[in-house]
């Protein structure tokens, strides 16, 4: 791992905690679907744990994020409580959105999760607006827009980066390049060899990092967040990673090269970072094991809580369409 201005041990352990939480939560999500306890569309973030964990370590609680359908990792890393999240995944009235958004549309303003979109590319134009609100108020907040490599081919990406640059908005565009857009490989769909290169068209820094390397991702995020907070404008960060599973739960991923996939899984960033933390003396094995056990228990509680919660009343159909019930 690179060792450029490494964060302190507490920060590193906090990053690991997020990663461990995301990994455990993913494994539990798959199990819950597999065993038929819950039916939901599920886009696994497994393999991409480092990115939001390292980015969030540079964010304040009141900084904003806009994320996408493949976003439970981004949400958990930003602090959405497990119970609220799981109740929403289960469509219960106790969920973040009273069960009205579902897995692809989690909103939790208390932790800064302002929009989760199921539309490829659409996190970015809205992130600009949030960043604009901070610029107007001078509240010092930064907005992060998460999106995939495939989303860098849609118009919204280009419109958003251009506007953010012209207006010098306090926004950071974080592309999680997992080499796949649904079933299509990156090279087959993307004219630029690197998404980061596209930043040049918009006169903003474009940085590609190993998104499975905590220190590298942390450093790039820190620079980008500082730049945004200081008023110097947006940055495009392309974080290279790999999607361990198919696009959506149930996808047999026959189109993915098994060797490439096996290699990526063998290099799993979560245990790799765990080992490194212990090796470097940043954490003791026993402490991490205790942390992981606590995470497991917390997830179990959240799932039980969610599945025991009530479904929303059908009266919700006419609520929240407009401010007052429609005439």
């Amino acid at each position: 791992m690179t060792n450029r201005t490494a964060p302190d041990a507490a920060t590193l352990v906090a990053i690991y905690r997020r990663m461990a939480l995301i990994k455990a939560n993913d494994e539990r999500s798959r199990k819950v679907i597999m065993t038929g306890r819950l039916v939901m569309p599920y886009y696994s973030p497994r393999g991409q744990e480092v990115i939001p964990s390292a980015v969030s370590a540079n964010l304040n609680d009141n900084d904003y994020i806009c994320t996408i359908y493949r976003g439970t990792h981004d949400m958990l890393a930003k602090g959405v409580p497990l119970k609220d999240l799981w109740a929403e995944l289960a469509g219960r009235v106790t969920g973040t959105c009273k069960g009205k958004g579902g897995p692809m549309h989690i909103t939790h303003p208390k932790s800064g999760v302002m929009v989760t979109t199921g539309i490829v590319g659409s996190s970015m134009p809205i992130a600009n607006g949030l960043a604009w609100s901070s610029q107007l108020k001078g509240d010092g907040r930064v907005t992060v827009a998460y999106f995939g490599d495939g989303a860098s081919n849609i118009g919204a990406f280009h419109e958003a980066l251009n506007l953010a640059s012209v207006w010098k908005l306090p926004v950071v565009f974080v592309c999680q390049n997992n080499e796949w857009g649904e079933h299509t490989a990156y090279e087959k769909a993307t004219s630029a060899p690197r998404v980061a290169d596209r930043a040049a068209s918009y006169s903003m820094p474009g940085i590609r990092v190993d998104g499975n390397d905590v220190l590298e991702t942390y450093a790039a995020a820190r620079d980008a967040v500082e730049r945004a907070r200081s008023g110097a404008g947006p940055t495009l960060v392309e974080a290279m990673t790999y999607r361990f599973h198919g696009h959506i739960f149930g996808d047999t991923d026959a189109y993915m090269d098994p060797e490439r996939k096996a290699a990526a899984i063998a290099a799993d960033p979560v245990p790799r970072f765990r080992e490194w933390l212990i090796e470097q003396g940043h954490a003791a094995e026993a402490d991490l094991a205790a942390m992981e056990a606590a995470i497991d228990a917390e997830i179990d509680q959240a799932i039980d809580y969610a599945l025991a919660s009530d479904f929303p009343d059908v009266g919700e159909l006419s609520r929240d369409v407009f401010a007052a019930e429609a005439a």
């Binding site: 809205i126 600009n128 958003a160």
Partner: peptide, 15 residues
Amino acid sequence: QAIVGAAIGVSLGGF
């Protein structure tokens, strides 16, 4: 898209 997106986002920020 950028215009309406910015309008949506800035409204989420209280404007």
